[in-house]
Design a protein around this nucleic acid. Structure first.
Lengths: 187, 187
DNA sequence: CGGCGAAGTCAACACTTGTTGGCAAACGCT
DNA sequence: AGCGTTTGCCAACAAGTGTTGACTTCGCCG
């Protein structure tokens, strides 16, 4: 079969995202990705240079975070949890990053960059000027990542079984407190 | 050099734990582990059979959770967070599991087993008979794992910089609420 | 039609992986 | 001392990795 350059490149990228999401950086091989895309491994090299660059292309993505300013201030935690559940289930981009960031330094760096460049600006705008903005955002991230880890990666039965509404009801207030509450106290 | 069987086996196991903790299952190689132990790779095979069994031996460990019954009921969350911080920083056992469980099915299974066999009995005893015991324990686990992920694996600056006391003050109440609070409400 | 550049295939490279079997040296025993 | 067992090393294997270069085939433009 004959395809256009753009077409194959997109096909390879889609196959790469899936493999990286399922296997992580080390276990995903150029050969398996090429096989999924029904193409020769050397094509992958031609289009992306090497495995690292392919990963960089596959891991590029946007959290698409909403601006929190317009929201009900008491509702920010729940909204964030909902948004992240959507992002986790919508496509594989976050899975690609998480699965790889645990063992691959480059992917971990990417994760930190996304935290700093995409999450923090949004929470900073919500929090205004305070010195603990970084801590608050990072704590929220820790809970959100932990939830994803338990639900989508480790597949702890109870978390897998919980409905979206239940998750929001439980975890929303946690994130809310990290962003807007006091350490020792309630929501 | 000549060593006793027990001695070399222990040396290998120590080297294996370190490598698995740093690299995860796939990137840690028998050869690198053997090199760290200053021994021939074939010795690793003789003592442990194959890589899987070596990992199983290296990933065997005990959470050493305290019984929660004797504690102040309002203090359980903070105590658990403290205990887990100790476990994460005390040795590499939890790191071995986390680094591998994200990409290795066997390690993930192991993680679920530890959750079911070591964490749940302790929380169940604390919670008594209720139908949401699994959910509560899993939510607590998600926050604790997420914290470890952010602090020890991804190394998010703000979380790395926070002191033990700060972490307990922030995360303790979260765990407390998961175990003893209501979904929508405060601690 | 003829030729040229793009798209795709094939085979091979150098290297690393887990794993195996044979062989040498050191020990504990009688 | 002589024996067998243990402890260790060496060399090699089959398979799989990222990566490269030469070769073929297609489609388009003059």
């Amino acid at each position: 079969m004959r395809r256009s350059s753009e077409q194959t490149k997109a096909t390879i990228l889609a196959a790469a995202r899936e493999r990286f999401a399922v296997d992580g950086y080390e276990r995903a091989t150029i050969r398996s990705i090429a096989a999924d895309a029904a193409i020769d491994p050397s094509m992958v090299m031609r289009y992306f240079g090497n495995k690292e660059k392919l990963f960089a292309a596959a891991a590029e993505f946007d959290l698409q975070l909403p601006r929190l300013a317009g929201l009900d201030r008491d509702d920010v935690g729940a909204r964030l949890v909902e948004h992240f559940l959507d992002r986790w289930e919508g496509d594989e981009a976050l899975m690609v990053l998480l699965r790889s960031a645990v063992t691959n330094a480059e992917a971990a760096h990417r994760m930190r960059a996304i935290f700093a460049e995409q999450l923090r600006p949004v929470t900073d705008e919500f929090l205004g000027e305070r010195d603990d903005g970084g801590q608050r955002a990072a704590l929220a991230a820790s809970q959100i990542l932990g939830l994803a880890l338990a639900r989508y990666v480790l597949r702890f039965d109870p978390v897998v079984a919980m409905s979206r509404a239940e998750l929001v009801a439980w975890v929303g207030p946690t994130v809310q407190r990290y962003l807007a509450g006091r350490p020792e106290a309630s929501v």
